Computed example of a mutant assay.
Amino acid sequence: MSTTWFITGTSSGFGRLLTEQLLERGDRVAATLRRPEALDDLTGYGDRLWVRQLDVTDTDRVRAVVDEAFAELGTIDVIVNNAGYGVFASVEEATDEQVRAVVETNLLGSIHVVRAALPHLRAQGSGRILQVSTAGGQTTYPNFAYYHASKWGIEGFCQTVAAEVRPFGIHLTIVEPGATPTGFGTGLATAPAMPEYDATPAGDTRRALASGAFALPNDPAKIARAMVELVDSGETPLRLPLGQDTYDDVRADLRARLAEHEAHERVARSVAAG
Rank of each mutant, 00 (worst) to 15 (best):
L17V: 05
G127S: 11
V65T: 11
G178M: 04
Q131A: 09
R207E: 15
E196M: 05
A162G: 08
G187D: 12
M227T: 10
S2D: 12
S90Y: 09
E260S: 13
E155L: 11
F6P: 04
D27N: 02
L73H: 05
R251H: 08
G15E: 12
R269G: 07
A268D: 12
Y247M: 14
S133T: 14
A117I: 10
W50H: 14
T10Q: 07
P177V: 09
S126L: 08
Y247N: 04
T200P: 04
I154K: 02
E155F: 04
V228S: 04
I170V: 14
E155C: 07
A89E: 08
A89H: 02
H148Q: 13
T43P: 00
V91I: 15
F14Y: 14
Q53M: 06
F184Y: 10
L240E: 11
T8H: 08
T236N: 14
G203D: 10
T139A: 13
D67C: 04
F88S: 08
Y141S: 13
R25I: 04
T8R: 04
F157L: 14
T173I: 05
V87M: 09
A116T: 03
P195G: 07
T3N: 07
P237Y: 09
P217K: 10
F214C: 03
D198V: 01
T3F: 02
L258F: 05
S126M: 11
A189S: 15
R25D: 10
L49K: 05
A273Y: 08
A38G: 02
L108E: 04
W5S: 09
E20I: 12
P142C: 09
V161I: 15
G183I: 07
T32Y: 00
Q138C: 00
L172P: 01
P241L: 10
A208F: 00
S233Y: 08
K151G: 05
T8I: 08
A83Y: 00
E176N: 04
H112T: 12
P237I: 11
S233W: 13
Y85L: 15
L49W: 02
F184N: 01
V113S: 06
N81A: 12
H120A: 09
V66M: 05
E37D: 15
G44D: 13
L118M: 15
L33I: 06
V99M: 14
L107F: 11
G74C: 12
V161N: 07
L54H: 03
S150R: 05
C158T: 13
D47R: 07
R269L: 14
Q124C: 11
M1A: 14
R48P: 02
G74N: 12
A208C: 03
L242T: 08
P36A: 07
E229I: 01
G274P: 09
R207N: 07
R251F: 00
T173A: 10
L73I: 10
G109N: 03
L254C: 06
R225E: 15
T180E: 10
V56R: 02
R63Q: 15
I174S: 09
I76D: 06
D41W: 02
R207A: 15
